[in-house]
Design a protein around this nucleic acid. Structure first.
Lengths: 342, 342
DNA sequence: TTGAAAGCGCTAACAG
DNA sequence: CTGTTAGCGCTTTCAA
């Protein structure tokens, strides 16, 4: 015989499985006579019974599992941004008694067949983390799919649409605008933007915000000062070479769209013997790195990724547990962390 | 009505649910007449049916889920070592069609009630990652619990016992011994060991290996040259202060037991204006950091954490899928990566 | 060959 | 108040 079940206990005691279930789960409620209860508990102990959570979940229609979908080609845990978000999610799940089911992107060519994921009923809901492989179009598609599948979900990052969904993000336009204010106040007039890919919602917001911020001060963001590296190191170097070849017309300050771009920029400066901030000022939009051992310490607008994960999980679980709960949208504030680069 | 089920389709078509199940899952086998099959497929499509994985798992007694247990107080994803291990696990799971269930440590005071986890039948097996909160005693206890609960599992790190289990790790004694060889060859005679906690299996192996390695060259590892910081920055600084106060008797080389200790050592050197390797040589046992932007580049024995995760998952899935599969133990080789610190 | 009945282990809704 | 019957949605057996 395999692991003991409720009815194994029931037989031994001479009652029905249901009675055992009640005695074991419903605590001290007087649903089962005290003596029956005692005998059940005793036998359960003897057999070292432990419930089959799967059967439980099927009967209760509730798994206490939250699914995680992160569209990425590479293993997701390498990415510090995601790691921090996951930590936040995890901390909330822990507190509220849920576990995390990390869906592996299935299918060939790195693109996953997400429909199955949404619809497979292992989880009570899904947290969807948009990454740099998500364009505005795919984000909308994702939302449509999730809603069509009637899956409860909350989304992190990169959604600037108007659909009423659970969402946690930052206002990238505001970040870039603040960056413009900051740099202009420091006397910069030629400011460039080193970014990843022009299809990214974050990129578009940042450009918008930076442009508006500069205009406020009577400046402009010329097209040639927007550089998209496609997250390729050589791509970033090519852009920087172009900018620095402008001699006296080169940018005096660069805004880096994220951590990776910042590192590429540092590498470039290292290679070309460019000093920061003597030769060029650098301002970064980045997330909190626990082990911030990069030098020079970057002046940055920091995105609270840990908190984003926490809140996304809270929103989702509220939706799961509270019947008529309305979806909520949270825009988190960013923080200026002064370093030595601007 | 909620999401469509097998019997919804069955009713519409006028057959039994079982027939639908067969038609949908068993492909072209001639279990269902071709025309019935066509009608079933058509209706399933219309209702945009998708199977309830939970019910499926209950019936099949198999979830294609692998559980992950990492005993840690802090959120696990912050830790680069764990992140890399997870990435490795994830890559194997992806390839073999499994998903990852990350168990949140439950219970108060950070210590979790693991029995429930092992026995809850959500997963087909468990990967247990030992961390620096695991002593030799708790590791043994873990193994005992897992075996008692008849849970299939594989373990990563820190097990130096003899029980036949799925295990992936490195030979820490060999690493320390190689470190001794390396440093002695460079002319060092006073070598100190900066470690975390003396209860850790890894610590004990490293001390053993270092000691033997030094003895081979007619040297010794004096007790006062073994420093345990308890992973506390101040603790590490105190140890280093003590060593450096020895003046001409101070160590000329330090072996750091892991990444964090290395960083504390770097911070200390920074603070006290000590140059590496001019004033003291440094050798580290560490894992592959994807973003290795720390300077100076450390001379290190590198542990292949990604691969450890991959292999642990392979072992587990083999055990799950192959009935009489014997447990296997894998000791991975480490690699010397030359930096500028020794 | 094709279909329906009998569970997987549990809990929510019932009847005594 | 106490304890049982009737499913949750699926698959594997077994009878036709």
């Amino acid at each position: 015989m395999g692991t003991p079940t409720l009815s194994d206990i029931a037989k031994r005691v001479g009652v029905s499985a249901a009675a055992v279930s009640i005695a074991l789960n419903k605590g001290e409620t007087n649903r089962v006579s005290a003596k029956t209860r005692q005998r059940i508990l005793k036998v359960a102990e003897e057999l070292s019974y432990s419930p089959n959570e799967l059967a439980k979940a099927l009967a209760e229609k509730r798994t206490r599992l939250v699914g995680l979908v992160v569209p990425m080609r590479d293993p997701i845990f390498f990415n510090l941004f995601i790691a921090q978000t996951l930590s936040g999610i995890q901390s909330t799940l822990m507190r509220r008694g849920y576990n995390l089911l990390v869906y592996s992107p299935a299918g060939k060519n790195g693109v996953m067949k997400r429909d199955k994921i949404y619809e497979s009923k292992y989880t009570d809901g899904i947290i969807f983390v948009n990454t740099r492989s998500c364009s505005a179009a795919t984000v909308n598609e994702t939302i449509r799919d999730l809603q069509a599948a009637k899956v409860k979900f909350s989304m992190i990052n990169s959604y600037y649409g108007r659909a009423p969904i659970n969402y946690v993000g930052v206002d990238d336009a505001a970040i870039a605008s603040a960056a413009a204010d900051y740099l202009v106040a420091k006397g910069h007039r030629r400011i460039a933007f080193l970014s990843g890919a022009h299809t990214l919602p974050a990129h578009m917001q940042l450009v918008k915000g930076l442009d508006r911020g500069l205009q406020k001060h009577g400046l402009t963001l010329p097209q040639e000062f927007i550089g998209c590296s496609e997250y390729d190191r050589d791509g970033a170097f090519a852009i920087l070479d172009r900018w620095f070849s402008l001699k006296s017309h080169r940018p005096t300050a660069i805004l880096a769209a994220d951590d990776q771009l910042l590192l590429h920029l540092y590498d470039y400066a290292d290679l070309r013997k460019i000093s920061i901030p003597e030769d060029v000022s650098v301002l970064a939009r980045r997330n909190i790195g626990i082990e911030d051992h990069i030098r020079p310490r970057p002046t940055s607008f920091v995105i609270p990724t840990f908190q984003m994960g926490q809140l996304a999980a809270e929103l989702l679980i509220d939706t799961i547990e509270t019947p008529g709960c309305e979806p909520r949208r949270i825009t988190l504030p960013f923080e200026l962390v002064e370093g030595t680069t601007a």
